[in-house]
Simulated scan of single mutants.
Amino acid sequence: MSSDRHAVSSASTAERFYHGGKSVYGAPLGILMLDARFPRIPGDMGNATTWPFPVLYKVVKGASPDLVVLREASGTLERFIDAARELVDLGAEGITTNCGFLALFQRELQQTVPVPVLTSSLLQVAQVGRTLAPGKRVGIVTISSATLTPRHLSAAGVPPDTPIAGTDEGAEFSRVILGNELTLDRDLAERDVVTAAITLTRNHPDVGAIVLECTNMCPYANAVRCATGLPVFDIYSLVSWFQLGLAPRRF
């Protein structure tokens, strides 16, 4: 009985006294956004309706998809650091980004902001790999297999021999995103992502799960799952896990 009273008293105290220090409350996740204008459909990380919880956004000026994906985000590190600090000042208690290629900045961002940082969907590859049966491994589907380098993989802790397939040769997805075009054919984009996943599994029968590198691929994760029969992980699955640590469910 006394322990129950103590629990009630503690809960009442927690609900009575509130502490300040931030500008915005109730949105612990901050998302660093590329400077882009291509369509962000539901399911895309940059579409606020994708998330079942509030988020904070900050666009990193000049960080175009072409620059970040095809040219290793050259010259943008300080801009990402400044933007991450702005999100923390605003109220973010955890930082993520909307491009898997920003794994290159994982360590630098961790070292310069006082909150947890999750730069890339690729950071979950090792964790997913530990769930698979012996003889199975994770495969990656990316927006640009030509420029997803060993440096990116190493920065995310991804084994260097991980199978990779890209949408580079597709009809729609890579062209629209990297070209920052204003119109996207969703069906063609989905076809590109699914085709890359099927190619990946055909070329590497030992793939037991797929990680989608690109944050813009989340709307097509279910289609990839249906086409391959394999578990599919993306930035949505990773950030959902991250958010549960930033704001645990209260029972």
Rank of each mutant, 00 (worst) to 15 (best):
D66W: 10
L200S: 12
V138D: 09
G62E: 08
Q111M: 12
R175K: 15
D161W: 05
K136D: 03
A221S: 09
T195M: 06
K22S: 13
D192Y: 11
L244W: 06
E169W: 09
S10A: 14
R225P: 05
Q124S: 08
L34D: 04
R151G: 04
R107F: 02
L109D: 00
V125D: 07
L29Y: 08
F251E: 08
T131K: 09
E213M: 04
I31H: 02
A133R: 15
T167V: 07
P134S: 13
L188A: 15
A103V: 14
L123H: 11
L212T: 02
S154T: 11
R225H: 15
R16E: 13
N216H: 01
T147Q: 11
G245Y: 04
L178F: 08
D82E: 12
R191M: 09
K22F: 11
V69H: 11
F105E: 03
F173H: 12
Y236L: 07
L70D: 10
D44G: 05
S237W: 01
H204F: 02
P205G: 03
S64A: 11
N216F: 02
P28H: 02
N216C: 04
P28T: 07
L200N: 04
L56R: 10
R175S: 09
G91N: 10
A165L: 06
F173C: 13
Y220D: 02
L230A: 08
L87R: 01
T201H: 04
R249M: 07
E213T: 06
L148C: 13
D206A: 01
W51G: 00
F251C: 07
I95C: 00
